[in-house]
Structure formats: structure tokens, C-alpha cells
Amino acid sequence: MTGATLYVCTTCKAGEPVPEGAPRPGSRLHAALLAAGAPEGVRIVAVECLSACDNGCTVSLSKPGAWSYVYGRLALDDVPAILEGARRYAATADGIVPWRDRPTVFRKQSIARIPPLEPNP
């Protein structure tokens, strides 16, 4: 099993006005995920933009040779479900967690599913 990466958009505003200098909702989500602790086989990485600005706070899961996913409309209350979904994703060989085994936020708030990259010939 190759390690998975949970990317968290730290620039997401989640449709909220953010005063100058105040942490954005995406940054708060990233901090909450780090505070809760990454599951085994998962690293949590901050990124500046996942280009899903109309979808609130967003995260992405990926690992070499596996399907990747982008999830949106996430909030601080979703931290346990995000980490559980990341744990289940990391435990797969191909990135595909059976539908009924995915947390509800991953079933209902998926923005994109991206096929694995093909090795260069």
C-alpha cells in the first residue's frame, strides 16, 4: 500500500466574507485536520488552491497509481468523516472505496474523480 495524500485548500473562503488577516475557512479546516491527526498511511498537505472556489472548503485525495478525488462543501464538523474517508482510501490499492463504505460527505459531496496517471512509455 502506497501512502495517500490529503490535500486541503487553505485559500477557500466557503462563501464567507473574511476580514483582512483573519484565517480563511479552508485554513481553519486544515488546522483542524492536523490537530485531529492523520490516519496511518495518510499525510495532510496544505495547498493554496484546488480551483473549486464555488464549492466551499475543498480537499483532494490522491496516491500513486490510484484514482484521485476532489470533495467540496466541507466544514469543521466534517473533520472526523474526512479523516475516516482518507483512512479508507489509503487502505485501497486502486483508490476506489466501495460506495456504501464511504462517509456520507464523500458520497454526496464529490466534485471530481480523476483516473490514475498512466506511466510514461
Rank of each mutant, 00 (worst) to 15 (best):
G3S: 15
A38L: 09
E40H: 09
A38Q: 09
R113D: 09
A31W: 02
P19E: 06
S68M: 09
R107N: 08
A75V: 06
C53I: 10
S110R: 13
A52E: 15
R73C: 10
C49F: 03
L76T: 03
P98E: 06
T104H: 09
R113V: 13
E118R: 13
G41S: 07
A93G: 15
D101T: 02
S27M: 05
A91T: 08
F106S: 04
L76V: 02
V42P: 11
P23R: 05
A46W: 00
I114M: 15
M1P: 14
I82F: 05
K108C: 05
I82A: 09
P17G: 00
R88M: 02
T104F: 05
P17K: 09
N55P: 00
C49Q: 05
S68L: 06
L61T: 00
A14V: 01
G21K: 00
V105F: 03
I114G: 08
V105P: 08
V70M: 13
R43G: 08
G37Y: 12
D78W: 06
D101K: 11
V97M: 05
S62P: 00
G72Y: 11
D94C: 06
S27N: 07
E16C: 11
A52I: 01
R43D: 12
R73S: 14
T2F: 11
S110Y: 00
L83T: 06
P103D: 04
G95K: 07
V70C: 13
A91V: 09
A66W: 11
N55L: 13
V47A: 03
T2H: 14
K108R: 12
E48Y: 02
S51G: 11
V97I: 03
K13H: 14
L6H: 06
L33P: 02
C53L: 09
L76Y: 00
E48A: 03
V45T: 10
G65E: 14
K13Q: 15
R107V: 04
A52C: 14
I111T: 03
R107M: 10
S62M: 05
L83M: 05
A91C: 12
V79S: 12
A36C: 10
P64V: 08
S51P: 02
C53N: 12
L74F: 03
L74K: 02
E118F: 10
S51E: 14
W99F: 15
A38C: 10
D94W: 06
R87D: 04
R28S: 02
G21R: 00
P98I: 04
E16G: 02
P98D: 05
R43Q: 13
C53M: 12
V105N: 08
I111S: 05
R43Y: 00
L61H: 01
A14H: 07
P116G: 12
R107P: 07
D78S: 07
E20C: 00
Y71M: 07
R100P: 04
